[in-house]
């Protein structure tokens, strides 16, 4: 009886568990270059998951989410450089400020829909980037303009969020991604998740059922910005450099949104799946062909994007899980039949 329940629990999840185990264990046994790819996968998975919390559930396309990533990175780094505050504490202060900033920005933006919302978020992203690039100090805070923030190397210190080996960074990311996915799962199964999905389906009907549209969108925005700020802090600590032209860039925003879109909007594991597909493609291609055929990786990246949007407009999450389940059913059907015969 016990074994039967067990097999039911794992049914349809074998590949998911396998995938998660690979993400957890394999980076221990590969060389640094591959570890870097794993770190990038999880970094983008983290950003895309945060994007998904607001945009995936509400169905609006934000193309300015890198702003919140950058704000988080800047605040925790400035606290470290100018106030010598440990990033472990700084990241929470940064997260709180980013969340408030996100809600303030969201207030006017969420009055718009569709392309107008997307355009406004692009404008926001560019506005912040140009502002930071061109201002050395703002209200006495030394932003250091286009130079960006260079974090001093202090060696292997846990308190300073600085590690000598990549693998420790990787496990910090694993924890952050796990928290974000857990939060996404909790949202999806709560009143908030139901309300956001309702707003996405039909705002008028949702409003007639007593749902305060702006309120719930802003709650989601706050949570999303809070979590993406952690990714910003990680970015700063890992690369030891925060440059406005990269972290506030439009490219970054688009990449975050695309990974979530390819993975599957409004799903819990979709963004992670999207990152697992797209990031290795980008990294592999730019490494292999970056010298001989510059730009090829962008070309192939584009083709993958077009194929996914054409044939799986709701993301790869549902088709892929379906495929895994059917393969699994075929693989294990023989074992089950023999068990049934044995019972008889």
């Amino acid at each position: 009886m016990n074994t039967k329940e067990h097999s039911n629990f794992f049914q349809g999840k074998v590949f998911a568990i396998l995938g998660l185990l690979i993400l957890l264990i394999v980076p221990n046994f590969v060389d640094t270059n591959v570890q870097i790819v794993f770190i990038l996968i999880l970094f983008y998975a983290l950003c895309a998951s945060c994007w998904n919390i607001v945009c995936g559930f509400v169905g609006e396309l934000s193309l300015g989410h890198a702003v919140f990533l950058g704000v988080g990175a800047y605040i925790s780094s400035l606290l470290l450089m100018d106030c010598s505050l440990s990033p472990w504490i700084g990241m929470f202060i940064a997260a709180a400020i980013t969340a408030v900033f996100g809600v303030i920005v969201g207030l006017p933006c969420f009055r718009l829909h569709g392309p107008y919302f997307a355009l406004t978020t692009i404008a926001l992203g560019e506005l912040i980037r140009i502002f930071v690039e061109n201002n050395e100090t703002v209200f006495g805070i030394n932003l250091r303009g286009a130079m960006g923030l260079v974090l001093k190397q202090s060696g292997n210190q846990f308190i300073a969020f600085e590690f000598a080996n990549k693998i420790t960074y990787y496990y910090v990311l694993v924890a952050l991604v796990a928290v974000t996915i857990l939060v996404t799962w909790l949202i999806k199964n709560s009143k908030l998740g139901f309300y956001l999905t309702a707003i996405k389906s039909d705002p008028d009907a949702a409003e007639s059922l007593g749902i305060k549209l702006t309120k719930y969108k802003l709650i989601a925005m706050g949570i999303s910005c809070f979590l993406i700020s952690f990714a910003g802090t990680f970015y700063a600590q890992y690369f030891r450099y925060v440059g406005p032209s990269r972290i506030f860039s439009h490219d970054m925003s688009v990449q975050i949104a695309l990974i979530a879109l390819v993975g599957g909007q409004g799903t819990v594991f979709g963004p992670l799946m999207g990152a697992c597909l797209l990031v290795p493609i980008t990294e592999f291609l730019s490494e292999e062909f970056g010298g001989t055929l510059p730009g090829l990786h962008l070309f192939i990246y584009g083709i993958v994007m077009i194929l996914v949007v054409l044939y799986m407009p709701r993301g790869i999450f549902h088709p892929v899980t379906k495929l895994f389940k059917s393969i699994e059913a075929k693989l294990f059907s023989f074992g089950k039949k023999s068990v049934q015969k044995g019972e008889k």
Partner: peptide, 29 residues
């Protein structure tokens, strides 16, 4: 949205189901 809390509910001439959800989930909203 305040009218629903006051006790007024309505349906729409052109039905507006929450398509991504199941029937019972629609009622849950």
């Amino acid at each position: 949205d305040t009218m629903a809390a006051r006790g007024l509910a309505r349906t729409f001439q052109v039905t507006k189901p929450f398509g991504d959800m199941t029937v019972v989930e629609n009622f849950m909203v």
